[in-house]
Design a binder for these strands. Structure first.
Lengths: 198, 198
DNA sequence: GTCTATAAGATGATAGAC
DNA sequence: GTCTATCATCTTATAGAC
């Protein structure tokens, strides 16, 4: 309880930040070592190869994301609020240094990654899609949300909006861009009576 | 007219493909040289540094994209058809090897790129946003398109959908995903009378 | 314009002392 | 677990012959 987590976890935290800002091929063991004030050999002790590190990063992220969704479900049963909390997870990520979604970044670089990493990325998106589809379906059934097509299709669309808004906001170097685009899309999902509150 | 373009252009073509599939930090001069059957020194003659190559790639892409938009404008004045041609440009890109939008990829890696490259990326998105906003505004004025908020905001949303759908489709390793998401979003933009045709 | 040769530095990785 | 030392390889880049 004295130090902030063991070395392996600190390595993962720094590597995750570097991954989200620079990409998998945009950082090295040297970068991590310098950030933590240790040697690269120490990192190899915990993660023998960079592929091992990548697999653990993607897997941990998927687990943390599922845990975050579980907390959202425990906090509220309201579909609108659940949706807003989901979007908040992405907003909070981008808010800090315009960090990309970890799996969005990995998707872009997927052709250069070991297969297990690609598998974890696919799993992350599947989790997100399923959770969103269920939430969207509940919201529409309750007359609180309005959209055409299947909940699954809408879930995929929202995921694309979130990932794409991060990418475009970064490319245009205009931070507020993300929030504007996402808020605009959400407004279109809310039924007439629900959108009065804004 | 004998060979398919001079060496510099062939280098750019191969580099563009590698950039779209593997990212800026995911390919080297060696990869380009091997693909063309030449030596890396020859590439350095045309593009002294990788930054030079990156700047030319981003600049050329922006020019080619503007030229493509000019051709769309010459081919049709109908806002719906213009919109569909715009989306086709992205579809055609993704269709081949699930290639990402060149500037979408560069946006993700922007923290590792030389400033001039970032400038070209920003310019690309500005061009796209402006062209889309004009087209969307014309479509709504003609009663052919339906959306809330400003045309600029809708343009940004569509751009985010296109970029994000590419990323998510790649991450989920489900190619049809892109077309499904984009077609669904477009359907929502079409006014009731227009959407009957589908 | 393209080649061979070469170099300086980065990168992923291992062996073995402490 | 972390360090020093060392490694092979990759990467970007330059000099100079052809």
């Amino acid at each position: 309880m004295a130090e902030i987590g063991d070395t392996a976890e600190q390595v993962l935290d720094v590597a995750q930040r570097l991954l989200q800002t620079r990409g998998y091929n945009g950082f090295s063991y040297k970068d991590i070592a310098q950030a933590l004030g240790i040697r690269t050999a120490s990192i190899h002790y915990h993660f023998p190869t960079k592929a091992d590190l990548g697999v653990e990063l993607a897997g941990r992220h998927r687990r943390q994301f599922r845990a975050a969704l579980d907390r959202v479900e425990q906090r509220t049963t309201d579909p609108i609020q659940r949706l807003e909390r989901f979007v908040d997870l992405f907003r909070q990520t981008f808010e800090v240094e315009s960090r990309l979604c970890l799996c969005g970044m990995l998707s872009a670089e997927i052709a250069t990654l070991p297969e297990p990493v690609a598998g974890a990325v696919e799993g992350f998106f599947s989790d997100a899609e399923e959770w969103l589809a269920d939430t969207l379906a509940a919201g529409r059934k309750a007359g609180r949300l309005r959209f055409t097509g299947s909940p699954r299709q809408q879930a995929r669309l929202l995921l694309a909006v979130l990932e794409g808004a991060m990418v475009v906001a970064r490319g245009m170097r205009h931070t507020e861009h993300f929030q504007d685009v996402v808020a605009g899309h959400l407004r279109g999902l809310l039924s007439p009576q629900s959108s009065i509150k804004h």
